[in-house]
Protein backbone atom coordinates (compact mmCIF):
# COMPACT_ATOMS: atom_id res chain seq x y z
CA UNK A 1 0.00 0.00 0.00
CA UNK A 2 2.97 2.33 0.06
CA UNK A 3 3.68 2.54 -3.67
CA UNK A 4 2.24 5.75 -5.17
CA UNK A 5 -0.12 5.34 -8.11
CA UNK A 6 -1.30 8.89 -8.64
CA UNK A 7 -0.02 12.21 -7.46
CA UNK A 8 -1.45 15.72 -7.78
CA UNK A 9 1.07 18.50 -7.26
CA UNK A 10 -0.47 21.95 -6.91
CA UNK A 11 -2.98 21.23 -9.66
CA UNK A 12 -5.11 24.14 -10.84
CA UNK A 13 -7.68 24.03 -13.64
CA UNK A 14 -9.22 27.21 -14.96
CA UNK A 15 -11.81 27.77 -17.68
CA UNK A 16 -11.30 31.36 -18.63
CA UNK A 17 -12.14 33.27 -15.45
CA UNK A 18 -13.80 30.35 -13.71
CA UNK A 19 -11.65 28.18 -11.47
CA UNK A 20 -12.78 24.56 -11.39
CA UNK A 21 -9.87 23.17 -9.40
CA UNK A 22 -8.07 25.65 -7.17
CA UNK A 23 -4.86 23.94 -6.12
CA UNK A 24 -4.90 20.29 -5.14
CA UNK A 25 -2.11 18.21 -3.62
CA UNK A 26 -2.94 14.55 -3.23
CA UNK A 27 -1.31 11.13 -3.26
CA UNK A 28 -3.18 7.95 -4.06
CA UNK A 29 -1.53 4.64 -3.22
CA UNK A 30 -1.49 1.61 -5.44
CA UNK A 31 -4.48 -0.69 -4.96
CA UNK A 32 -6.47 1.95 -3.12
CA UNK A 33 -10.04 3.03 -3.89
CA UNK A 34 -10.33 6.74 -3.34
CA UNK A 35 -13.58 8.65 -3.72
CA UNK A 36 -13.93 12.27 -4.75
CA UNK A 37 -17.02 13.46 -2.94
CA UNK A 38 -18.69 16.82 -2.94
CA UNK A 39 -21.67 18.88 -4.04
CA UNK A 40 -22.07 19.62 -7.74
CA UNK A 41 -19.58 22.15 -9.04
CA UNK A 42 -16.97 21.32 -6.40
CA UNK A 43 -14.42 20.18 -9.00
CA UNK A 44 -14.59 16.43 -8.37
CA UNK A 45 -15.39 15.44 -11.95
CA UNK A 46 -12.82 17.87 -13.29
CA UNK A 47 -10.21 16.26 -11.01
CA UNK A 48 -11.16 12.84 -12.36
CA UNK A 49 -10.89 14.09 -15.94
CA UNK A 50 -7.50 15.54 -15.12
CA UNK A 51 -6.32 12.04 -14.25
CA UNK A 52 -7.87 10.65 -17.43
CA UNK A 53 -6.23 13.32 -19.55
CA UNK A 54 -9.59 14.54 -20.84
CA UNK A 55 -8.58 17.87 -19.31
CA UNK A 56 -5.06 19.19 -18.91
CA UNK A 57 -4.11 21.18 -15.81
CA UNK A 58 -3.62 24.95 -16.10
CA UNK A 59 -0.96 24.73 -13.40
CA UNK A 60 0.80 22.00 -11.47
CA UNK A 61 1.49 18.40 -12.33
CA UNK A 62 -0.38 15.14 -12.48
CA UNK A 63 1.78 12.01 -12.05
CA UNK A 64 0.62 8.51 -12.87
CA UNK A 65 2.87 5.63 -11.80
CA UNK A 66 5.62 8.13 -11.08
CA UNK A 67 5.58 9.68 -14.56
CA UNK A 68 4.59 13.31 -15.17
CA UNK A 69 1.67 13.09 -17.61
CA UNK A 70 0.50 16.70 -17.29
CA UNK A 71 0.92 17.40 -21.02
CA UNK A 72 -0.11 13.98 -22.26
CA UNK A 73 -3.50 13.60 -23.94
CA UNK A 74 -5.84 10.86 -22.77
CA UNK A 75 -4.74 8.54 -25.56
CA UNK A 76 -1.16 8.54 -24.30
CA UNK A 77 -2.05 7.54 -20.71
CA UNK A 78 -2.87 4.12 -19.43
CA UNK A 79 -6.14 4.68 -17.62
CA UNK A 80 -9.51 2.94 -17.78
CA UNK A 81 -12.68 4.92 -17.35
CA UNK A 82 -16.26 3.96 -16.63
CA UNK A 83 -18.51 6.78 -17.76
CA UNK A 84 -21.71 7.94 -16.18
CA UNK A 85 -23.60 7.01 -19.34
CA UNK A 86 -21.32 3.95 -19.84
CA UNK A 87 -20.49 5.29 -23.33
CA UNK A 88 -20.58 1.88 -24.95
CA UNK A 89 -20.17 2.04 -28.71
CA UNK A 90 -23.66 1.28 -30.02
CA UNK A 91 -22.39 0.08 -33.40
CA UNK A 92 -20.05 -2.59 -31.97
CA UNK A 93 -20.84 -5.87 -30.29
CA UNK A 94 -20.12 -6.34 -26.61
CA UNK A 95 -17.00 -8.30 -27.50
CA UNK A 96 -15.75 -5.64 -29.91
CA UNK A 97 -16.42 -2.94 -27.35
CA UNK A 98 -14.12 -4.67 -24.90
CA UNK A 99 -11.56 -5.66 -27.55
CA UNK A 100 -11.42 -2.08 -28.85
CA UNK A 101 -8.73 -0.86 -26.46
CA UNK A 102 -6.29 -3.73 -27.02
CA UNK A 103 -6.74 -3.39 -30.80
CA UNK A 104 -6.02 0.33 -30.63
CA UNK A 105 -2.92 -0.38 -28.59
CA UNK A 106 -1.65 -2.79 -31.22
CA UNK A 107 -2.86 -6.25 -30.20
CA UNK A 108 -3.91 -8.39 -33.16
CA UNK A 109 -7.68 -8.66 -33.42
CA UNK A 110 -8.03 -12.40 -32.60
CA UNK A 111 -5.79 -12.05 -29.55
CA UNK A 112 -7.66 -8.93 -28.46
CA UNK A 113 -10.99 -10.73 -28.82
CA UNK A 114 -9.70 -13.68 -26.80
CA UNK A 115 -8.54 -11.34 -24.06
CA UNK A 116 -11.87 -9.49 -24.13
CA UNK A 117 -13.79 -12.76 -23.90
CA UNK A 118 -11.75 -13.75 -20.86
CA UNK A 119 -12.53 -10.49 -19.05
CA UNK A 120 -16.19 -10.66 -20.00
CA UNK A 121 -16.38 -14.13 -18.48
CA UNK A 122 -14.78 -12.81 -15.31
CA UNK A 123 -17.39 -10.09 -14.92
CA UNK A 124 -20.12 -12.65 -15.50
CA UNK A 125 -21.14 -11.84 -19.05
CA UNK A 126 -20.28 -15.07 -20.82
CA UNK A 127 -22.76 -15.84 -23.56
CA UNK A 128 -23.55 -12.22 -24.35
CA UNK A 129 -20.47 -11.50 -26.45
CA UNK A 130 -22.22 -10.98 -29.75
CA UNK A 131 -25.04 -8.81 -28.43
CA UNK A 132 -25.19 -5.12 -29.20
CA UNK A 133 -25.11 -2.86 -26.14
CA UNK A 134 -28.70 -1.81 -26.78
CA UNK A 135 -29.75 -5.42 -26.26
CA UNK A 136 -28.42 -5.54 -22.67
CA UNK A 137 -29.99 -4.48 -19.39
CA UNK A 138 -28.61 -1.47 -17.56
CA UNK A 139 -26.67 -3.60 -15.08
CA UNK A 140 -25.16 -5.69 -17.86
CA UNK A 141 -24.20 -2.57 -19.80
CA UNK A 142 -22.38 -1.33 -16.77
CA UNK A 143 -20.45 -4.54 -16.42
CA UNK A 144 -19.40 -4.24 -20.07
CA UNK A 145 -18.22 -0.72 -19.33
CA UNK A 146 -16.18 -2.00 -16.39
CA UNK A 147 -14.78 -4.88 -18.43
CA UNK A 148 -13.80 -2.45 -21.16
CA UNK A 149 -12.05 -0.22 -18.65
CA UNK A 150 -10.00 -2.98 -17.02
CA UNK A 151 -9.13 -5.09 -20.05
CA UNK A 152 -5.89 -3.21 -20.66
CA UNK A 153 -4.69 -3.51 -17.06
CA UNK A 154 -4.72 0.25 -16.60
CA UNK A 155 -2.59 2.07 -14.03
CA UNK A 156 -5.85 3.37 -12.61
CA UNK A 157 -9.55 2.85 -13.22
CA UNK A 158 -11.81 5.86 -13.01
CA UNK A 159 -15.50 5.77 -12.16
CA UNK A 160 -17.58 8.83 -12.98
CA UNK A 161 -20.77 8.54 -10.91
CA UNK A 162 -21.20 4.95 -12.03
CA UNK A 163 -24.42 4.34 -10.10
CA UNK A 164 -26.39 7.35 -11.25
CA UNK A 165 -28.03 5.37 -14.05
CA UNK A 166 -28.71 2.29 -11.94
CA UNK A 167 -32.09 1.62 -10.33
CA UNK A 168 -32.14 2.60 -6.68
CA UNK A 169 -32.89 -1.03 -5.74
CA UNK A 170 -29.82 -2.33 -7.58
CA UNK A 171 -27.35 0.25 -6.38
CA UNK A 172 -26.16 -1.63 -3.33
CA UNK A 173 -25.52 -4.77 -5.35
CA UNK A 174 -23.66 -2.99 -8.16
CA UNK A 175 -21.66 -1.02 -5.63
CA UNK A 176 -20.52 -4.23 -3.99
CA UNK A 177 -19.66 -5.76 -7.37
CA UNK A 178 -17.48 -2.81 -8.23
CA UNK A 179 -15.73 -2.99 -4.89
CA UNK A 180 -15.08 -6.73 -5.12
CA UNK A 181 -13.81 -6.48 -8.71
CA UNK A 182 -11.47 -3.69 -7.68
CA UNK A 183 -10.12 -5.83 -4.84
CA UNK A 184 -9.91 -8.98 -6.93
CA UNK A 185 -7.87 -7.32 -9.68
CA UNK A 186 -5.87 -5.23 -7.22
CA UNK A 187 -6.85 -2.07 -9.12
CA UNK A 188 -6.13 1.47 -8.10
CA UNK A 189 -9.48 3.20 -8.44
CA UNK A 190 -10.76 6.74 -8.29
CA UNK A 191 -14.46 7.09 -7.86
CA UNK A 192 -16.56 10.22 -8.19
CA UNK A 193 -19.91 10.59 -6.51
CA UNK A 194 -22.08 13.21 -4.88
CA UNK A 195 -23.79 10.60 -2.72
CA UNK A 196 -22.12 10.50 0.72
CA UNK A 197 -23.64 7.16 1.63
CA UNK A 198 -22.21 5.57 -1.53
CA UNK A 199 -18.83 7.12 -0.75
CA UNK A 200 -18.84 5.77 2.81
CA UNK A 201 -19.72 2.31 1.52
CA UNK A 202 -17.11 1.83 -1.22
CA UNK A 203 -14.06 3.86 -0.26
CA UNK A 204 -10.73 3.17 1.35
CA UNK A 205 -10.35 6.89 1.60
CA UNK A 206 -12.63 9.80 0.77
CA UNK A 207 -11.52 13.17 -0.57
CA UNK A 208 -14.22 15.69 0.20
CA UNK A 209 -14.08 18.66 -2.14
CA UNK A 210 -15.55 22.09 -1.82
CA UNK A 211 -15.23 24.93 -4.31
CA UNK A 212 -12.28 23.41 -6.11
CA UNK A 213 -10.32 22.63 -2.97
CA UNK A 214 -9.89 19.59 -0.77
CA UNK A 215 -11.93 20.10 2.38
CA UNK A 216 -10.78 16.90 4.12
CA UNK A 217 -9.18 13.57 3.31
CA UNK A 218 -9.70 10.49 5.44
CA UNK A 219 -11.18 7.04 5.84
CA UNK A 220 -14.97 6.89 5.98
CA UNK A 221 -14.80 6.55 9.77
CA UNK A 222 -12.43 9.53 10.07
CA UNK A 223 -14.78 11.76 8.15
CA UNK A 224 -17.90 10.65 9.92
CA UNK A 225 -16.51 10.67 13.41
CA UNK A 226 -13.95 13.46 13.22
CA UNK A 227 -15.19 16.00 10.62
CA UNK A 228 -12.72 18.84 10.25
CA UNK A 229 -15.24 21.57 9.50
CA UNK A 230 -18.93 22.36 9.79
CA UNK A 231 -19.19 21.76 6.02
CA UNK A 232 -17.87 18.20 6.32
CA UNK A 233 -19.97 17.44 9.38
CA UNK A 234 -23.07 18.60 7.57
CA UNK A 235 -22.22 17.02 4.20
CA UNK A 236 -21.36 13.56 5.54
CA UNK A 237 -24.40 12.24 7.34
CA UNK A 238 -26.62 14.44 9.50
CA UNK A 239 -25.09 16.67 12.13
CA UNK A 240 -26.21 19.03 14.86
CA UNK A 241 -23.92 22.03 14.80
CA UNK A 242 -23.84 23.92 18.08
CA UNK A 243 -22.10 27.26 18.43
CA UNK A 244 -20.58 28.19 21.77
CA UNK A 245 -17.19 28.79 23.29
CA UNK A 246 -14.47 26.88 25.09
CA UNK A 247 -12.91 28.02 28.33
CA UNK A 248 -10.80 26.03 30.81
CA UNK A 249 -11.39 22.74 28.97
CA UNK A 250 -15.16 23.11 28.90
CA UNK A 251 -17.49 23.90 26.00
CA UNK A 252 -20.49 25.96 26.94
CA UNK A 253 -23.55 26.93 24.96
CA UNK A 254 -26.97 27.99 26.31
CA UNK A 255 -28.23 25.04 28.36
CA UNK A 256 -25.27 22.86 27.47
CA UNK A 257 -21.89 22.25 29.03
CA UNK A 258 -19.41 19.56 27.97
CA UNK A 259 -15.81 18.63 28.71
CA UNK A 260 -14.03 19.49 25.47
CA UNK A 261 -10.33 20.19 25.72
CA UNK A 262 -8.59 22.36 23.17
CA UNK A 263 -7.82 25.98 22.34
CA UNK A 264 -9.97 28.50 24.14
CA UNK A 265 -12.43 30.85 22.46
CA UNK A 266 -15.27 30.67 19.98
CA UNK A 267 -16.10 27.07 19.08
CA UNK A 268 -18.54 24.88 17.22
CA UNK A 269 -19.38 21.28 18.04
CA UNK A 270 -20.80 18.63 15.79
CA UNK A 271 -23.08 16.04 17.38
CA UNK A 272 -24.42 13.08 15.38
CA UNK A 273 -28.19 12.61 15.90
CA UNK A 274 -27.85 8.94 16.85
CA UNK A 275 -25.23 9.76 19.53
CA UNK A 276 -27.63 11.83 21.61
CA UNK A 277 -29.66 9.96 24.22
CA UNK A 278 -33.04 11.11 25.54
CA UNK A 279 -34.13 10.76 29.17
CA UNK A 280 -37.68 11.74 30.14
CA UNK A 281 -37.98 14.79 32.35
CA UNK A 282 -35.77 17.79 31.76
CA UNK A 283 -35.53 21.27 30.26
CA UNK A 284 -35.90 20.38 26.56
CA UNK A 285 -39.05 19.75 24.53
CA UNK A 286 -39.88 17.18 21.84
CA UNK A 287 -41.40 19.36 19.09
CA UNK A 288 -41.76 16.64 16.42
CA UNK A 289 -41.35 12.89 16.02
CA UNK A 290 -41.01 11.20 12.63
CA UNK A 291 -41.42 7.44 12.30
CA UNK A 292 -38.86 6.04 9.78
CA UNK A 293 -39.26 2.30 10.22
CA UNK A 294 -35.90 1.41 11.70
CA UNK A 295 -35.72 4.52 13.88
CA UNK A 296 -37.56 7.59 15.07
CA UNK A 297 -36.27 11.09 14.45
CA UNK A 298 -37.10 13.70 17.05
CA UNK A 299 -36.94 17.43 16.69
CA UNK A 300 -35.90 18.84 20.08
CA UNK A 301 -36.23 22.46 21.15
CA UNK A 302 -33.31 23.45 23.37
CA UNK A 303 -31.86 26.77 24.50
CA UNK A 304 -28.88 26.04 22.21
CA UNK A 305 -31.19 25.72 19.20
CA UNK A 306 -33.28 23.01 17.52
CA UNK A 307 -31.53 19.65 17.50
CA UNK A 308 -32.14 16.48 15.53
CA UNK A 309 -32.04 13.25 17.50
CA UNK A 310 -32.33 9.77 16.02
CA UNK A 311 -33.26 6.81 18.26
CA UNK A 312 -33.58 3.15 17.26
CA UNK A 313 -37.12 1.79 17.13
CA UNK A 314 -36.19 -0.68 19.82
CA UNK A 315 -36.35 2.13 22.39
CA UNK A 316 -39.72 3.14 23.82
CA UNK A 317 -41.13 5.93 21.64
CA UNK A 318 -41.68 9.30 23.30
CA UNK A 319 -44.72 11.37 22.33
CA UNK A 320 -44.49 14.95 21.03
CA UNK A 321 -44.66 17.45 23.86
CA UNK A 322 -42.62 15.33 26.26
CA UNK A 323 -40.01 17.20 28.31
CA UNK A 324 -36.62 15.48 27.97
CA UNK A 325 -33.07 15.70 29.13
CA UNK A 326 -30.26 15.24 26.55
CA UNK A 327 -27.61 12.62 27.34
CA UNK A 328 -24.34 13.42 25.53
CA UNK A 329 -21.00 11.67 25.88
CA UNK A 330 -18.25 14.31 25.35
CA UNK A 331 -16.30 11.69 23.32
CA UNK A 332 -19.05 11.81 20.68
CA UNK A 333 -18.78 15.54 20.17
CA UNK A 334 -16.28 16.71 17.61
CA UNK A 335 -15.08 20.23 17.53
CA UNK A 336 -15.41 21.55 13.95
CA UNK A 337 -14.53 25.20 14.50
Amino acid sequence: MTETAIEFRGVVKRYGEAVAVAGIDLTIAKGELVTFLGPSGCGKTTSLRLIAGLELPSEGQVLIAGRDVSRDPASARNVGMVFQSYALFPHMSVLDNVAYGPVIRGTKRPAARARAAEILDQVGLSGLHQRLPSELSGGQQQRVAVARAIVQQPDVILFDEPLSNVDAKLRRKVREEIRSLQRRFGLTAVYVTHDQEEALAVSDRIVVMQQGRIAQIGTPADLYERPASPFIADFIGDANLIAGHVAQGRFTAPGLSLDVPGPEGQAMLSLRPERIGLDPGGPDLIASATYLGSRIEYGIQTPAGDLLVSRPITETPLPVGTRVHLRIDPKDASRVA
Binding site: A52, L54, A74, S75, V79, A87, I104, R105
Partner: peptide, 8 residues
Amino acid sequence: EASQTMGA
Protein backbone atom coordinates in the same frame (compact mmCIF):
# COMPACT_ATOMS: atom_id res chain seq x y z
CA GLU B 1 -13.78 10.20 -24.52
CA ALA B 2 -14.06 6.48 -23.84
CA SER B 3 -12.27 5.84 -27.10
CA GLN B 4 -9.56 8.31 -26.10
CA THR B 5 -8.98 6.77 -22.69
CA MET B 6 -8.52 3.44 -24.44
CA GLY B 7 -5.67 4.91 -26.43
CA ALA B 8 -7.26 6.23 -29.61
